[in-house]
Design a protein around this nucleic acid. Sequence first.
DNA 1: CATGAATGAGCTTTCATTCAT
DNA 2: TATGAATGAAAGCTCATTCAT
Lengths: 202, 202, 202, 202
Amino acid sequence: MSPKVSKAYKEEKRAIILEGALHCFTEKGFQATTIDDIVKHVGISKGAIYNYFASKEEMYIQMADDKMNAMLANSLEHFKSLPVAADQIRYMYDRFRKQPLAELRKWMAFHLEFMLYAARQPHLITRWDQYADKALVFMQGIMEAGRTSGEFRPDLDCAAASRLFWSLRDGLALQYMLSGEELDYLQRIDDMESMVFRYIAG
Amino acid sequence: MSPKVSKAYKEEKRAIILEGALHCFTEKGFQATTIDDIVKHVGISKGAIYNYFASKEEMYIQMADDKMNAMLANSLEHFKSLPVAADQIRYMYDRFRKQPLAELRKWMAFHLEFMLYAARQPHLITRWDQYADKALVFMQGIMEAGRTSGEFRPDLDCAAASRLFWSLRDGLALQYMLSGEELDYLQRIDDMESMVFRYIAG
Amino acid sequence: MSPKVSKAYKEEKRAIILEGALHCFTEKGFQATTIDDIVKHVGISKGAIYNYFASKEEMYIQMADDKMNAMLANSLEHFKSLPVAADQIRYMYDRFRKQPLAELRKWMAFHLEFMLYAARQPHLITRWDQYADKALVFMQGIMEAGRTSGEFRPDLDCAAASRLFWSLRDGLALQYMLSGEELDYLQRIDDMESMVFRYIAG
Amino acid sequence: MSPKVSKAYKEEKRAIILEGALHCFTEKGFQATTIDDIVKHVGISKGAIYNYFASKEEMYIQMADDKMNAMLANSLEHFKSLPVAADQIRYMYDRFRKQPLAELRKWMAFHLEFMLYAARQPHLITRWDQYADKALVFMQGIMEAGRTSGEFRPDLDCAAASRLFWSLRDGLALQYMLSGEELDYLQRIDDMESMVFRYIAG
DNA sequence: CATGAATGAGCTTTCATTCAT
DNA sequence: TATGAATGAAAGCTCATTCAT
C-alpha cells in the first residue's frame, strides 16, 4: 500500500546523511561546505536532504545534538555495570584515551567551529548553553553520587568540579589540535586524570 | 619614479583598514564578514581596499602576522628594562591579567577561527606553523637565557617548557570562552603562573 | 475490464480534491499554492492527486470549468419554475445579493487571477473565451426569450445587453474588492438591476 | 576621482531597469517573471539589479509607486493652466481616452495583479491602501475646489464622489480587459464622463 | 590612488512531478 | 489505486573582485 517506508528506514537514511554531512563539515568547515558537497558525498539528490532537514544549519544543530546525546547514552549504558563513581569517571578517561586521534581532531574542529558559530547566532546561544549544561549536569551527578557514597570528600563543590572536568578536557583537546603531538596527548590525559582525582578524592 | 604618496601615508591607511577589518572579523567572523561590512566600518571605498590587500584572505593573514609581531615587538621592547628571565615571564602573565576580558574573548575567537581556517587551507598550514614557531622560539629564548644565568634548573627542556607555556595559555583562554566566568579566569592565571614556575625553577 | 473502484467513488474523490484545492487557491493564489498545501488540506497523498489530475494547472482549469458549469446548471434548474425571463434575471441578481461578501471576495480573486493567468498562457486563451462565451450565450438566451415573449423591447440587441450584464457584474465585484465597503455593495446591486431593466424593458 | 557617477546616471539606470522589469511583469506576470528574464531584457548583470533594488518585490512596489506618483505629478503639472475644477476632471478623461489601448491593457494587468498580490501579503496591505488613498484624496481635492467655487452642487459628498470616480474607471478598464472591444471602450468613457458630471453638477 | 557600479559564478532552498513499493 | 521519498531544474539573492572614470 505504500512506500510509507519503515521508520527505521528513515532513521537510517537520516543517519547516513548526517554522517556524510559531518564528514564534509569536519573536512571543510560548516560555512565552506555546500549542499552540493554533501549531496555528492552522500550520493543523494539535493531535494532529498530537505525531506530530512529543514536547512543546512538544522543539520549542523542536530549533529551537535546527536553527538551530545550519544555520548550521554553510551556513558549511561556502561554505567549500569559500574556502580562506583570513581570507576565511572575513569571510564570517561578511557574513552578519551581510546578515541582515535584523527577522530578527536575532527570532533574537536567540529566542536570549536560550532561553538564559534553558535556564539554569534543569537538563536543558537541558548541551545549551546543547553549542551554545556547537559554535560555539566551529567558529570555533576556522578560526582554527587560519589560524594554521597563517601568515595569523594564531603566538602566537594560538585558543580565546580564538573566545570573543571570539562574545561580541562577542552583545554587538552585544544592543545592537541595546536601541537599535534600524539604521545604527549596520552601522557597528558594521565596527568589530567590524576589531577582531577587528587581534587575530588576524600 | 617617486611614489605619489608617502610610504607613511600608505602604512597608516593600511593600519586603519586592518583595524576596521579586525573589528568586523572578531564581531562576525571571517567568513561572515563581507567586504561591504569592512568598507562601511572603515569609511573607505571598496576599490581602495584592494590597493592595499590582494584579497580578503590576505587581510586576514596579515592581521595574524601583525598581531604576532606586535606581541613580540612589545615584549622585546619591555624586556630591555627587564634583564631577569623570570621577570620577563612574569611580565607575560601580567599582560594576560591586564587584558580586558572582552578583548580576550574577541582575540580568542579570532585566534580559534583563524586556526580552523588556516588548518584547512593547504597554503596556510605552513604559515600557521611559522606563527606557532615564532612564539615558541621566543619563549624558548627567554627560558634558555634563564637557564644560562642560573635562574632556572640546568636540566630544563626549554623547548618542552615553551610548548607547555603556550598550551596552557590557550587552554586557559578556551576555558574562559566556554565558561565565561571572569573571576575564575584571574585565579587560574595565578595558578598557571605558579605551576609554570614550579616546573622551570632551579 | 471493470474498473477497480466505482466511477462514483472517483467522482467523489475528485470533487473533494477540487474543493480543498479551491480553498487553497483562493486563500493564497494559484502560483503561491503548492501541491503540499493541497495535500495537507485535503488529507490525501501527493501521488493520489496525480491519479485525478494531470497537473496543478489542470486542477485550476477544471475548477474554472466546474464553477462555470455549476452556475449554469444551478440557474437552469431554478429556471424550470421561472418561466418569465424577467424573473430569471431577477433571480440572478438575488444570487449576487445573497452571496456572502467574504465568498464573493474569494471568488472574485479567483476569477481575476485565473483571467490573468489564462490570458498569458496561449493554450488557455481559447478556453477562457469559451467560458466567457458560455456565460454570454446563457444570458443572451434569456433575453431572447424575453424579447420573443414580448417582455422586453423588440429592438433589444440581446448580445450587447448580455455583454453589458456581465461587464457590470464584474465591474461591481471589482469595485467591491477595491473599496471593501459592504453596504455600498448591496445598494449598487440594486442600482445595477434597475439600470439593466431600464435598458431592456419594452 | 570617481565613477561615483552622477545622480542622474543612477536615476536613469534605475528607470531603465524598471522599464524592462515592467515589460516582463506585464508580459508574463510578476510571479512568473524571473530575475533572469529581466536581466536578459535589460541587458545588465544579475548583481547590478540588486544595486538598485533590494528585491524583486521591491521593484514591483516601486513600480506601483512611480506609476502613482507620475500620474499625480503629471496631472498637477497640467492643472496649473486649468483653474476650473470641471476642466481638471475633463483632463483626466482625456488622459483615459488618449491612452493607447495596448498600454491600458498592460497597465490594467499590472494593476490587477499587484492588487491581488498585495492583498495577500500582509506587509503590503497598508501600502496598497496608501495608494488608493492618494488617488482618492487627489480627486477629492479637485471636487472640493469645484464645490467651493460653486461649479458643483453645494451638497456634494466629495469623498463618495471621488470613490465613485475611481471605481468607475477600474470597472471600465476591467470590462475592456474582458471584452477587448476597443470602440466600445471609447464610447463608454464618454458615458462615464457624462454620468459623473451629472452626479456632481450643481 | 580613489571610487563604487558592474560582474557572474555560486549559494541555499523550493516544488511540480515521478515511481518503486 | 495510494503512498511519500526522491528528483533536479530553477528560483532569488550574495558577494569577492574588477575596472572605467
